[in-house]
Design a protein around this nucleic acid. Structure first.
Lengths: 119, 119
DNA sequence: CAGTATCCATCTTGATACTG
DNA sequence: CAGTATCAAGATGGATACTG
């Protein structure tokens, strides 16, 4: 950063986008950021519409990136908890910024839609 | 932000992700952030691998979101220039953060890969 | 030059059923 | 409970050819 730009390959942000790419990933992170840890079934309930298959897949991807920690408790019935890793916490500023920007953006779109109701 | 979280619907960041979703969008923005304006063909040249169809589509999407301004000069041969709008500039802090985070992330992955060469 | 039009390949997501 | 397996649907991107 500092003096500006062009310090290296232009593609570094792409990997960030990739980490966050996945229809439900931000929602998953959102909930995990608000709770120390959550069980698989709790996430299912908090994210209406997601299927087991997809929730599993996206959690595994986040785990592979080191963003989320998966802990299996060898009990019967099985219990698995997910939590943000310390490293995952470093994403927080970005997600906060995106949240704020997204809010503004939605507001803007709503205004535009009002200005030209029929098109 | 201020006190923390849960101010509203959890989905505001999703729209940000959506604006940036598209395989080449970040690259397009990256180049447009570095130049006051660029022609279609210049972007094509700066982004090896992209096709006309896809470049057109992603530019239109960015235009629809108000991020990019498209200006047609009625000349022969036709000239079309693209530039970041003032509104689009507001994305800059996010993209800078993502750039920095992405760099760190890639570094981390490289280290991990070294630690466990075979898997 | 700056696109469109078509068609195809791929990748991601979803529906549903089954299991340690 | 927390998944996996299988199959189908949808969205996204790519190749190629053509045009105002």
């Amino acid at each position: 950063m500092s003096s500006g730009h062009r310090t290296d390959s232009p593609c570094s942000a792409v990997s960030t986008l990739q980490v966050l790419s996945g229809k439900w990933k931000w929602l998953i992170l959102y909930h995990l950021f608000q709770h120390p840890s959550l069980r698989f079934s709790e996430l299912m309930r908090m994210i209406p519409g997601i299927t087991q298959r997809v929730l599993t897949k996206q959690l595994r991807e986040l785990e592979d990136e080191g963003i989320v920690q998966r802990t299996v408790y060898p009990e019967v019935p099985p219990r698995v908890e997910y939590a943000i890793t310390p490293y995952g916490q470093s994403l927080r500023p970005i997600l906060d910024l995106m949240h704020a920007w997204g809010l503004e953006h939605l507001r803007r779109k709503a205004e535009r839609a009002q200005q030209e109701p029929q098109r």
